[in-house]
Design a protein around this nucleic acid. Structure first.
Length: 477
RNA sequence: GCCCGCAUCGUCUAGCGGUGAGGACACCACCCUUUCAAGGUGGUAACCGGGGUUCGACUCCCCGUGCGGGUACCA
């Protein structure tokens, strides 16, 4: 059954970095392929010379790699259908456009952009749909002459009569009246194909079985189906996945704050958490599991459980998932992952810090802030009350004195005993341990929130701990 | 203007004619607790509106409304 092999593709255009919307589409295509044990192709759709932004294809590939969305064929890895960059395949599209013209399924058109604009304005003024009026179709001999004289020309699809319908894998049955569909330009006057021609030719040549793309392509699908029919090719299955919206309910776009996914990596978000979070944007497992490893997603994901409504991305959800994924990391993985966020630290240092950090990070980047008092000097913030609320001066002094005395006597060697000893000091004076300990937090860490203080002192060592306690003691007068 | 689509807590969603409308995030409270977290328990919170169909509608149909998308020699 070689024909049943699932082959999907992700076809970004190099017009900017990837955001959650585009990555989500890529993820669904990847999951569909991986779930079925099939292939995924990456293909760069750079047929628009105007919008091309140099360097972005490298950025896109880096993003996919970082997320763990590997591809079987495409840039960098090659494959049987090389090249996977459309600007390198121009001859193929031109040849196919000619075939369509020869078969009467497409025609040349020399109408100027100005005429087309005027035509549309007139149609709109009459409340009519704006579609090409086929002026050139009726005068092909003349058009041929004009072309010979060097006039700019395009190839248009001759949209057939009738109705186009398909069973979309996420939308269900979809149907269009062909009379509502324009005669799409297939070949531009600069010789480049439009998306519509290139995508159909490439998906067919590359044997793509499932076209998974964002739902803004739904109105174009009848054009694509008409092309498959004109070429005499079998059409692939289509799955149009809903858009991802920003907090403003607008479609995610580079403008308006849609961040490059790679930036999340720098902030300390994990690829597995991002993958988990965006998979949940439109897909659900059907049971109540919501935390998934990429492997689990590959196993569980199917397109028929993809929702058809647009989803708003919620950064809070990503934070939650990221914390969970961090807590599931092994110590070795954290030692590795924290290197970037705790620059200049040794593996051994990070290994010691991890037990204190693990439950307290939303992102790996939080380690920088949390560890600052341990890796450098503390900063005294005027907003921090000292002694803290609910603790009188005398008790604060007592806590610090007791702590210094205990540490002098080797108290850091036995942390549970030290804890009990200090707790007793506060309680003997009628102050709750939770309040009394704040004195030590501020003294040692400079703040009443953060890493656990006894463990922190153990990390700092006897001398440094004593020094901070002494300085705090002096501030109490 | 003209086409198309979507519609359950603030957010992501489950639901596929009969449910006390379930879960997760966020939020609130309490518990645990050396701070902060993490963890535990509980709570607030939703079927866009109007007509049908049906013994019975969140579920099916129609209309409206709202939102999204398309309408380019962009993808």
């Amino acid at each position: 059954m070689p024909d049943a092999r699932v082959r999907t593709r992700f076809a970004p255009s190099p017009t900017g970095a990837l955001h959650f919307g585009s990555v989500r589409t890529a993820l669904f295509a990847w999951l569909t392929a991986r779930h079925a044990g099939g292939d995924i192709i990456v293909r760069i759709e750079d047929t628009d010379q105007e919008r091309y932004i140099p360097g972005t294809e490298a950025l896109i590939l880096e993003t996919l790699s970082w997320l763990g969305l590997d591809w079987n064929e495409g840039p960098e890895v090659g494959g049987p259908h090389d090249p996977y960059i459309q600007s390198l395949r121009i001859a193929i599209y031109r040849e196919h456009a000619n075939t369509l013209v020869a078969g009467g399924n497409a025609y040349w058109c020399t109408c100027t952009p100005a005429r087309l604009a005027a035509m549309r304005d007139a149609q709109r003024a009459q409340s009519k749909p704006t579609r090409y009026d086929r002026r050139c179709l009726a005068r092909q001999a003349e058009v041929a002459q004009e072309r010979a004289n060097g006039m700019a020309a395009v190839v248009r699809l001759l949209m057939p009569e009738g109705v186009t319908e398909w069973d979309d894998l996420v939308r269900g049955h979809v149907s269009f009246n062909n009379s509502d569909i324009d005669d799409q330009i297939l070949l531009k006057s600069d010789g480049f194909p439009t998306y519509h021609l290139a995508v159909v030719v490439d998906d067919h040549l590359m044997e793509v079985s499932h076209v998974i793309r964002s739902d803004e392509w739904i109105p174009s699908t009848p054009k694509h189906l008409a092309l498959y029919a004109a070429f005499g090719w079998d059409a692939p299955s289509f799955a149009h996945v809903p858009a991802v919206l920003g907090p403003d309910h607008q479609k995610l776009s580079k403008r308006r704050g849609a961040r490059n996914v790679l930036e999340y990596g720098e902030l300390g978000y994990l690829p597995s958490a991002i993958v988990n979070a965006i998979a949940l944007l439109g897909w659900s497992s059907g049971d109540e599991q919501e935390v998934f490893t990429p492997e689990e997603l590959c196993e569980r994901f199917t397109l028929d459980r993809v929702n058809s409504a647009a989803a708003i991305f919620d950064p809070k959800r990503l934070d939650d998932l990221n914390g969970i994924h961090i807590r599931r990391m092994s110590t070795d993985e954290l030692v590795e992952g924290l290197e970037f966020h705790l620059p200049g630290t040794s593996k051994e240092t990070r290994r010691q810090l991890i037990p204190l950090l693990r439950e307290r990070m939303v992102t790996l980047g939080d380690a920088t802030r949390l560890c600052a008092p341990l890796l450098g000097e503390i900063t005294l913030d005027a907003d921090v009350e000292f002694p803290p609320k609910k603790v009188d001066q005398a008790t604060a002094v007592a806590m610090i004195d007791a702590c210094m005395a205990a540490i002098e006597a080797g108290g850091l060697e036995d942390q549970p005993a030290l804890l009990e000893q200090l707790r007793a000091v506060g309680e003997s004076r009628g102050v709750k341990a939770r309040d009394a300990f704040r004195v030590l937090y501020v003294a040692v860490l400079g703040t009443a929130a953060g890493l656990p203080v006894i463990e922190a002192m153990a990390f700092l060592g006897k001398e440094k701990s004593l020094q901070r306690l002494r300085e705090a003691r002096a501030r109490l007068g």
